[in-house]
């Protein structure tokens, strides 16, 4: 018999009385308990829903992965790739949702780092000044284009 509520097999016909009239409804054990307001459904074979949210390779549930950030096998990644995007984003300091800003920050960091380094090199050995002049000018312009003025 099929459950009227979740369409799973294994339903039983339950009878109940409401407003003095007798009714019958086909429900599985879980849905029956749920409707009665019991907290925990009795353990049973996995429902269709449940199987879908577990990795068939290793049995790790999507819930567990969301909670811990750990996957159980390479298949978890394949199966839950879309669902994992926000998890990865959270664990990677929003590297996905902020990818545009990060690209800019990264460019600035690398150019400014090189700039400072070449300036320090000039200070410690003035012989380098001529060699570095062109690259320094180049970096300055690139940084300006990114909205950073190193003066």
């Amino acid at each position: 018999m099929v459950c009227k509520r979740c369409n799973n097999e294994g339903a039983i016909a339950y009878r109940y009385i409401k407003d003095g009239k007798e009714y019958q409804v086909e429900l599985c054990h879980d849905c029956y308990n749920l409707l009665l307001g019991r907290q925990e459904p009795a353990p049973k074979k996995k429902s269709f829903f449940d199987i879908n949210l577990r990795c068939p390779g290793c049995g790790t549930s999507l819930d567990e992965i969301r909670r811990t950030g750990y996957i159980g096998c390479a298949d978890c990644f394949k199966n839950f790739k879309n669902e994992l995007v926000p998890v990865i984003d959270a664990f990677q300091n929003r590297a996905i949702s902020r990818s545009r800003e990060i690209q800019k920050e990264k460019d600035v960091m690398i150019l400014a780092g090189e700039y400072e380094h070449l300036m320090a090199e000039n200070l410690s050995s003035p012989a380098n000044c001529a060699k570095n002049a062109r690259r320094l000018k180049d970096i300055k312009l690139k940084l300006l284009a990114l909205g950073v003025d190193v003066g």
Binding site: I88, Q92, A95, I96, K106, I110, E116, H117, A120
Partner: peptide, 25 residues
């Protein structure tokens, strides 16, 4: 480096090196 995604290997090496230089200065 705090994150491993969104950066190439070369970018990680460069940014961490520059940041380390900065702290040394």
């Amino acid at each position: 480096n705090e994150v491993t995604f969104g950066f190439t290997e070369n970018e990680i090496l460069k940014t961490v090196s520059y940041a380390a230089c900065k702290i040394c200065d």
